[in-house]
Structures are given as C-alpha cells and as structure tokens.
Design a protein around this nucleic acid. Sequence first.
DNA 1: AAAGCGTGGTT
DNA 2: TAACCAAGCTT
Length: 366
Amino acid sequence: MTKIFLKNLENVNISQFQRDLIDWFQREQRILPWRENKDPYRVWVSEIMLQQTRVDTVIPYFNNFMAKFPTLNALAEAEEEQVLKAWEGLGYYSRVRNLHKAVKEVKETYAGIVPDNAKEISKLKGVGPYTTGAVLSIAYGVPEPAVDGNVMRVLSRILSIWEDIAKPATRKIFEEAVRELIAKDNPSDFNQALMELGAIICTPTSPSCLLCPVREHCQAFHEGVQAELPVKTKNKKNKKVQLASAVLRTVDGKYLIRKRPSEGLLANLWEFPYFEIDSNYTSAKRQLNDYLQKEYSEDAKLENGAFAKLDHVFSHLTWNIEVYAGEVGGDIPQSETLKLVTEEEMQKYTFPVSNQKMWKHYKEKE
DNA sequence: AAAGCGTGGTT
DNA sequence: TAACCAAGCTT
C-alpha cells in the first residue's frame, strides 16, 4: 500500500506544489469567522462544528456560540443546558457534550491552555486524528496531517490513489502522503489549502480542473480520470421505523415533555413522548393510547385522527411519525426527566428537529 | 472493522 | 425520489 503512493509522489515537484497551493489559498480563501484569528479555542470549536456539516450551516452557529462562550473558560463554566441549546439543530449532539467535557478537562488539567502536542490533545473527548492535526497545524503551526474527506479526495486525484476511502484504514495512507507533502514552514495554510481546494475546486462531482492551481501536479487530471476518483463504496440503506407521538396538553395549557437517555440517539434532548408502533397489533392510536395511560396518566385522552404524518431522516435510519394531539390531567408526577411546561418555558429546553417539525404542525392546526 | 450518530442541501 | 453528500469520532 505504502509503495503505491510513494511511487506516485516521485512525480510531484513538492516545493512547487506547496507554493502553487499556498499562493492560491492566500489569494482565494473564503472569509470565514473562524479565520479572524488563530485562537486555539476558536479553531477547535470550528473544527468540531464542521465535522460532517456544511460551512454555510456552521457560520451562524459559530457566531452565536462565540458570543455566548467567548473563551475556553467561559464554555467550561457554562451549564450543560445552555451549551446544548446553542447546538440545537446542528446535529450529532455528542460532539457538543464531548467538547464541553474536553474543555473542562483543559481548564482543570492544562490551566485553560489547549495542548500544543498530539499526545495530550488527542486524549481529549471528541478529538480524533483529524481534529488533532487541524488544531495543531492551524492554531500552533505544527506540521501534522489533518486528513478529512476533502484531503482524501484531493490527494486521491493528485497522487492517483485508488484505495477505498470509505475504509477506516485508508486514512493512514493519506496521512503518510501529507507527511511527505506538507510545507514545514507553513503547515497552517498548507492543510487549510488542501481542504479549501476540495471544498471549492476539487469537488466530488464535476471538479473545476481548469481553475485548479495545482492541476499541473495532478496525475488524475493528466490521465483524465478525475471523475473516477476517489473510490468510495456505497452506504447501506436506512432502516425505517414507525412511530406514534403525542402532543399532550393540560387544561391550563402546559405540555408534557420528557428527556431522552444520556446515551444513544439524540442523547439528553427533550421530546414529546412517542412509542414505536408494533405493526402486528391494532391501530397506532390504540397502541399509543395504551402506552400513554400506562406510562404517564390514567386519563390521557387522544383526539381521533393523527394531525400530522411526517418523515424524519437520520444518517442511519428514518422515522415515520404519526402525531396525535391529546389532553392529560395536571397531576402527573414530574421529575428531572419528565415535565409539564408552558409554551414559553419550552424555549429553554433543547429539542431535535423532528420534534420541532411536530410542534410546527401542531401550531398550524390550532 | 463496522455500525451508530443529525441535519439540510444537491443531484 | 432516493441517494449522496459535508472540515469525523466513539465504541
């Protein structure tokens, strides 16, 4: 495996490649809020937010997050509830729980200074191989690889590497390639330039090779096979799950919400109670009614038809949800994970987008 | 190694 | 529409 790309590296004029790439980045890079300075905390937060998430989506979240938690210590001292709320709608919520935990660790163990070496920073929760390299190179100028999907795509084309980038083991091949290619005098711009190139020129479909600053170094371009790279095996189909959920209101206008478990899907977020439908049983409404009466209240009463049927697609499964409205008594025993709240109080809690969709339909129905 | 983990945009 | 994607990490 190693020999494949080392052989191809012989075809690259490395110092010229570095100059062409970095010159282009310094000319053409996008103006982004996390590029205002190289505060390691800001770089770190941006890298976590950008995991599997588009730049345009991240920008407003990043600005809001920095306004609320301007420094590492501010985030470390914040309440979990506030931190999760700042992430609401961004997805992959374990990212922010891990970040919060890691920032506390840095405050306690490293006096609030983000470690500047791989050994220490990679031990932090949520900091994997990519984020380690990104923070070290961008914030501290350490020549470490930061191999994300962009970098694998770009280098698979430049070096004509045909390994399957969907396989975890493949990342190491690209890390070794970057170690050979990286500009030791400017690893920050070099790593960012590889990613920027992947984001705006060397795109997954129809790359803009005629605008590419390094096309003369690109073996896939010379062979005309850029459209066939990178090699990436396909994902499996999503599993579909049928759910019935209920917006339950008391006579004095409070709504029943519950907190999800601290691990797994949408951990620690709040939601309207739901139930997974057993298709071998009777109607969804009957099942939901039985479930609600058993779990929460003897007198939960559902309206007749579902007021909404909606699909919510996750990365690995799809919820098909029937949503019912109903009424409950106000004497339900509340706890840390079960509450009756007014519409206004609801704003403090963090809900997944699936729940926000239900609420939107509910309000439109009224 | 492979599966679990969100969301919104594009094709 | 369904599939695929977008600056991955954990278990």
